[in-house]
Design a protein around this nucleic acid. Structure first.
Lengths: 191, 191
DNA sequence: AATGATTGATTGATGCGTCAATCAAGAACC
DNA sequence: GGTTCTTGATTGACGCATCAATCAATCATT
């Protein structure tokens, strides 16, 4: 079965399998063989398309960021007031496509990966800057010069909720997570 | 007996070396040989005392929790009002003995370990329960029934600050971290 | 036939855990 | 006070398993 144009399908399957496998294992201790098996291909093919295990991880990470970025952009497009923009960013952070068991576990492990792999760190830094920029933009009209500090608090809180969800045996509760962060936001801007 | 009483010294050295080595590597991908070398002993001796690599990790984790627990207890002993107790818990979380580069990195990696190792998960759950209990006890007189939710927010924020510090190339800034969390606390209880 | 897709087999490296052997500091005994 | 016995401390070497990466061969499509 050497269908022409299989490459993008295979790549996508391998990326998806990587996230699922990291989620299942709860760590980066997954073999290329396991990833490939879940994607329905051989380990050799994974190497053929990505070149190395590191590259597979980076591609998976990038995919998570792309999905999240799209979610944020979509939500922001519907917001008109600063307050709505704030809500949009927070809600996007806990959207069904991102706040999922395997993706949450992958996030946590990408934080670890970022400590070792410059490319992973770079990607994570980009995410941080984007988030901070989005939050600051929405916060400036509401809290003025405090925007920077408030954005840092919101960012840390979102990350913390993710971290704790990774440990919890319970299924992710989007509503509760969103409410917790939005409550914090309210208190920061209403005072 | 040869060099009577070497065991506790060796155990402590190996535990300390484990934390440092995890901090250096930024991941759990450290070999027993590396840990042992840093501790100034052979890999075989580490196995002799701990039995397995997993057990070494657990001992290191337990040590981090013990140090942190002592810090909290010490700070709480000096506090008399609920407000002071809150501050004590937060300040202890960012005390110099816990909010250090290698320990922060170890924390992050223990979160990952907890996803795989039941014993690590158990220890982390104990820490979470203790923190929540301490916070709730101090919060109840201040915010009544909201104590539980407020404690969850503070806990997530502390974890988030740790997570972000793990990624930051800058040296840990205790003052800034403490201020950020205490500011959040103020807004939660003053409203 | 040519080209891309795909894989099984292989390899080289790495690391955990084990084991037999050695070392050194006391204890027991004369 | 010296000799021998005992026992914990300590290690080097190695077996065994695992895994990333490579390669040559096969298969399907055009």
């Amino acid at each position: 079965m050497a269908r022409s144009g299989a490459e993008p399908i295979r790549r996508a399957a391998i990326v998806k399998a990587t996230i699922q496998e990291i989620g299942r294992a709860g760590s980066l201790d997954v073999t290329v063989a396991q990833i490939a098996a879940r994607a329905g291909v051989s380990a050799a093919l994974a190497h053929h398309y990505f070149g190395s295990k590191e590259a597979i991880f980076v591609a998976a990470f990038r995919h998570v960021l792309i999905v999240y970025g799209a979610e944020v952009r979509g939500a922001l497009a519907l917001a008109s007031t600063p307050r709505e923009r704030l809500e949009a960013v927070v809600r996007a952070s806990f959207s069904p496509s991102s706040f999922r068991r395997d993706t949450i576990s992958a996030w946590l492990n990408f934080y670890v990966l970022a400590q070792t792999m410059p490319e992973a760190r770079r990607l994570l830094s980009i995410y941080h800057r984007r988030l901070r920029s989005n939050l600051c933009h929405a916060l400036r009209p509401l809290v003025g010069a405090r925007a920077g500090r408030v954005a840092d608090g919101i960012g840390a809180l979102i990350d913390g909720v993710y971290l704790r969800q990774a440990l919890s045996p319970a299924a992710p509760d989007r509503a509760a997570a969103t409410a917790l962060v939005l409550d914090h936001v309210s208190r920061e801007i209403d005072a």
